[in-house]
Nucleic acid binder design. Structure first.
Lengths: 357, 357
DNA sequence: GTGAAAGCGCTAACAG
DNA sequence: CTGTTAGCGCTTTCAC
């Protein structure tokens, strides 16, 4: 590679007629260093003219930090089919860059429960870590957290308990699921099916299931395990699960789906079965992905605040990386139910409304 | 931060009773260093027992490379609403990790045409760069490429020409658009609308538009600029654009959408207008996002090979980073038309088929 | 076969 | 107010 281009701080120093120390002080804006405005300007000009950009490896070797946050996605497969993580990614990278941090992506594929992300930490490639999908069999993550490495998670893994080093940005999935299910109950449904992800693989799913059951119990409806199916995060899995639910007699009259993508697949199955939504089967989703308002019919769903969640997580992590203690250890964000057409609530009062969000 | 944990190669050396050189040779499997199997084992044990992980900053300071690839997404907004980039991301990170490379994400937000990604290059934080959405006003990227820094792009930006340093992994968007449009023409349509992204912002869109026009011309159909609308990549923009197209008289009888998400929004507008798909308006999309088979009706669309595209780009970049010259400078991947129900081709011959992909 | 020593480019005490 | 100097932890040439 004839890729030669190495302006070092020494060259800048020579060019400006000062020492490397001065260059470092000026360019890093070190406080308490009384350097004349004139010298400052000379250095800054020299740096600009030579196109000097410090070598980050050298910088982080001596400073001990990297200005980089790691982003671990334990199950990367949802990226392929679901719209929630991409939104999080957008917000996470935007917030990081705004604060001068780079983002290093560490994904774990195909259920390979590896701990490669530790190399990022131990190899001093990142200053902090955001964990998107926790994976409860990971025994390294709790250790890392206990060692006070800055970590922010999107929910508490099943194999961990809160300690003073646990920092979370989450929604109350149980409460949200209860509200979603209750909404269907209030509309007169009692045979309400639920399709979710495989709980062993996804910590996020347990609260949603619990909330679903809680709502049924609160209404005096017996919980029927046959009305619960597990797929993955994909539309295909929602389609398949719904097909099998439709063979159940008596047929369910409503569905609470574990996410919007599953709901989309399930709705396709319902239509293929010749049934109408919401007249024959009402559907409520979870996440409010951007395409939810444009589904047919527009999807009633729990609005998970992806953008805010990303920004909040970075704010929290930033504080931890600077040695501060965030105001809250556990930030719980609002997740309101957005009523559209798929649940049937808009059926009687008036004709279907506009799809504008 | 009481985050103390610094096993250095010196400690490993001491523990194993050898010198740092030996440790380095053993752990890096340096060829030509005759080290006894016994010593090797001692070192490897020591490293394992002490939990030694080399400091990457030190390593890359001296070696000059970082085992990291940069991933630049010029317009990050599609992440919020479209499913194509996430798939690419999945495949890109999977291929990188498989080859022992980390992925650094550099996103540009809100049309801020900055060149921050240069800091990754000049700061020696990455060994190579993948550019997802090119941005034609960027004058730095061509320079970087000319300086032989390893770059692989997803299509040639409008302000660049092929040189021997240009490496691309793309699809023939023009040809694909021609085939999509011709498919509609063959089904008897002549008033075919087209909704795409704003061309000034998205290099990818021009070939699609050209292909659309080429197909019309080949069939002797006059191109009507009023049938072409520009939105962005979102469903909302497709919805809005379609609403305005539906006011056009005589109404278009078919739509070729610039991507599947736009198609989804457009279909919602068509339904809201009380029209049927495909009977009143046939729809063809572009990308084949994973939810396309589950839309209502299942979307006929051009299948863009996201997964393969990601893998191929990494393969190419890997070669370039190792100083090799890839076999091809310009890899063009297949993008077949997938016929489902939204185009109407399945209407006459038989009832609508299964939605299984 | 193994070790001593130099140096990657930077920051930050410590003198001057 | 500025310069000298000593490392950060690793790789790698060159002697032993």
């Amino acid at each position: 590679m004839t890729y030669n281009r190495r302006v070092t701080s020494l060259e800048v120093a020579k060019y400006a007629g000062v020492s490397r120390t001065t260059v470092s002080f000026v360019l890093n804006n070190v406080e308490g260093s009384n350097i004349s405005l004139e010298t400052r300007a000379k250095v800054q000009n020299a740096a600009k003219e030579l196109g000097y950009i410090p070598n980050e490896a050298a910088r982080s070797l001596v400073s001990g930090h990297t200005r980089t946050v790691g982003l671990m996605i334990s199950h990367a497969e949802p990226l392929l089919v679901d719209a929630y993580i991409p939104q999080l990614l957008y917000s996470l990278t935007a917030a990081s860059h705004q604060n001068g941090y780079q983002v290093m992506l560490e994904t774990i594929h195909q259920g390979k429960q590896n701990t490669d992300y530790l190399r990022l930490v131990e190899g001093h490639r990142i200053d902090g870590l955001i964990v998107l999908n926790t994976w409860s069999h990971d025994t390294e993550l709790p250790k890392l957290i206990e060692r006070k490495f800055p970590v922010v998670m999107y929910g508490l893994p099943q194999n961990m308990t809160m300690t003073d080093q646990t920092f979370l940005v989450e929604i109350d999935g149980c409460d949200a699921a209860t509200r979603a299910t209750k909404h269907l109950i209030d509309l007169g449904h009692s045979r309400i099916a639920h399709i979710s992800f495989v709980p062993e693989k996804h910590d996020i799913v347990q609260p949603r299931r619990q909330g679903y059951i809680a709502a049924l119990e609160a209404a005096g409806i017996a919980f029927d395990p046959k009305l619960v199916k597990f797929g993955n995060y994909s539309a295909q899995s929602g389609f398949d699960a719904m097909k099998s639910l439709l063979e159940h007699q008596p047929r369910p009259t409503a569905l609470f789906a574990g996410n919007d993508t599953i709901a989309l697949g399930a709705m396709a199955a319902i239509r293929e079965h010749g049934l109408r939504i919401p007249e024959d089967i009402a559907v409520v989703g979870f996440d409010d992905i951007p395409t939810a308002p444009f589904m047919s019919p527009a999807l009633t769903t729990i609005q998970a605040p992806a953008i805010l969640q990303g920004k909040t997580a970075i704010d929290m992590l930033l504080q931890r990386m600077q040695g501060k203690v965030p105001a809250q250890q556990r930030v719980i964000l609002e997740a309101p139910l957005v009523v559209r057409d798929s649940c049937g609530a808009n059926l009687k009062p008036k004709a279907r409304g506009s799809k504008k969000r």
